[in-house]
């Protein structure tokens, strides 16, 4: 599934989408950054409620296809600017992590 499709499936608010043809091959849910780096796979969509600047670095280094902020979490403007500069996709969805994952499981 492409990230464009994912946005429509989740009715997402786009915060940073520099790489909109990126494919999503799996999902990882977690807020502890080292767990994410240890367990998420490349090309996963990463669902989290963490919104500090470090999520951009973690997404970049883990090579996940996008960050999905659950519960409608918003980002500071400087985090959005960094994400765009680092080519990291971030969307916000006004649903809980379980509901988001359940919607994605029908598509993957």
């Amino acid at each position: 599934m492409t990230i464009s499709k994912l946005c429509s499936v989740l009715d997402a608010k786009v915060l940073s989408l520099p790489d909109d043809t990126r494919e999503i091959k799996g999902v990882y849910i977690g807020d502890l950054l080292s767990w994410v780096m240890g367990r998420a796979k490349a090309d996963d969509a990463w669902i989290t409620i963490m919104s500090n600047i470090n999520v951009v670095a973690v997404a970049s280094l883990s090579d996940v296809s996008c960050i999905i902020l659950a519960e409608g979490v918003e980002l500071d403007d400087d985090v959005i600017a960094t994400a765009k500069a680092k080519f990291i996709n971030i969307i916000s969805v006004d649903k809980g992590a379980y509901e988001i994952a359940a919607l994605l499981s029908r598509e993957l």
Partner: peptide, 30 residues
């Protein structure tokens, strides 16, 4: 704390330019 990771991201970019495989780069940079 906010700039932590800049070196890793830079290394990631350098290794990519050297033609090293994405999985190896991922392991090194994490």
């Amino acid at each position: 704390f906010t700039s932590a990771g800049q070196a890793s991201v830079k290394v990631k970019k350098n290794l990519r330019q050297l033609g090293i495989s994405p999985e190896t780069i991922r392991r090194v940079s994490i």
